[in-house]
Design a protein around this nucleic acid. Sequence first.
DNA 1: GCAACGGATGTTGGATACCATATCCGAATC
DNA 2: GATTCGGATATGGTATCCAACATCCGTTGC
Lengths: 258, 258
Amino acid sequence: MTGRRTLNGKTAIVKDAIMRPAVGRVAVFPIKRETLTGMTADALRERILRGDYPEGEPLRQDAIADEFGVSRIPVREALRQLEAEGLVTFNPHRGAVVSTLSIQEIIELFEVRAELESDLIRRAIPNMTSQDDSRAREILAAYDAAIRNGEVMSWGELNWQFHAVLYAPSNRLFTLGIVNKLHQQSDRYMRMLLALAHVEQRAKQEHRDIAVAARARDVKRASRLMREHILSAGRILVAFLEEHRSARAKKTRRRAAP
Amino acid sequence: MTGRRTLNGKTAIVKDAIMRPAVGRVAVFPIKRETLTGMTADALRERILRGDYPEGEPLRQDAIADEFGVSRIPVREALRQLEAEGLVTFNPHRGAVVSTLSIQEIIELFEVRAELESDLIRRAIPNMTSQDDSRAREILAAYDAAIRNGEVMSWGELNWQFHAVLYAPSNRLFTLGIVNKLHQQSDRYMRMLLALAHVEQRAKQEHRDIAVAARARDVKRASRLMREHILSAGRILVAFLEEHRSARAKKTRRRAAP
DNA sequence: GCAACGGATGTTGGATACCATATCCGAATC
DNA sequence: GATTCGGATATGGTATCCAACATCCGTTGC
């Protein structure tokens, strides 16, 4: 066996399963040969993005290594990687914690996104085909279905896919990589206010409007709508966080000095 | 002794030296307590940015660990960090190499910079004070002196400082962090064509023009000049690289089949 | 009563030794 | 000439050990 089994039913990152066709048979499909470091990084990233590890949560190397059934080395390397992605913060000799963005940083995050993404869709629309249109429509449908069924989990992924489909015809992979990282950060926070129904409905309508403008190849309108879509989402999130954080700060103070 | 001595006169990252005042004396200044991983990452980053390690150069863990007088662990973590910064590329089981940006990626790099930095200076100018003006003037003077003395080494740092001083009044640290990383990548390539005198002179004049517009608090003009400054630098670099790379490709082909 | 001191304790940062495996390279083979 | 078959070599990873550091907590001293 290649993989490493957990001792007591914990998570475990398995290498097996995929790479075991029938006996004596040759594995035709290119087997996914990732390193443990990469898999650990992926697993941790997903947990952070899904909110399993909330803001400020300390990430103990031993515990994570234990849970995944690996040694501390790949865990540490994965954490370093996530640090450079902005998802994790290292305090020397005190370990890593899930990073916290200040209100100011979140404001900037959405404004940078607005800048880059309105530019991306502007460059993408001239290259769009009817295939892109129907692809966007499909994703929107899946998006709506997910909302109706209350699948909060898949929201982030579908939201990114919708944006990515609109930007893809720009053929700008480098920029898309940057924007993808920014999306990860913003989605991590957006998930917090998905419960608020009017936010979902609003985003859904804005997405629909953008798709229509793109289908009409209306560059200016689509670009403007995208910018406004991002900026308004940012404003709503910031308002929510300001209330949320000030409330939590009060509670902390009260607990500290009762 | 805290530090680790090299065995045979190699580079060595020293922890000592700084943290040893006179005997019995207390270290007043906050001693720089970085981890070896961090120091290794810094050292490697600088070497890559300075061009000591050229594009595509394989980065052997053992060799680096040896040269710095550390074990492989901090080296591997440092490399992971640099990977996420885009300076290094990992090929599973084949090791890390200094990353190479394609022409397309470099085009995008400069266009993203143009987008973000013209926006930054636009937001910064309303907050500028005469102190910022003189600070910019100082850096420009140092920049000129460096060019006159042919100090290619300090060019990248001074160039970034000039840009950073102009953007600082915007109070947008998050965006500045992104832009800083982009600058690192672009400076790495710009250094290649610093020998071309007309490029230096041109950049110098453009910087001067931008500084004048900023001093006049002319938002639109400064923003436009900055955008053009970045885009024209990008165009020159791309032209140079296209020639350079096609020439090298020919030579490689010839050597491969003589 | 309260601040300062001085251990416990636990975690990180790092070294070292060791191993399995993937990749590369050259020689032998067909 | 193309292919196959071994070594070399470097990476990815484990296990174990240790020093430095942060933090908590009880004690001391004022």
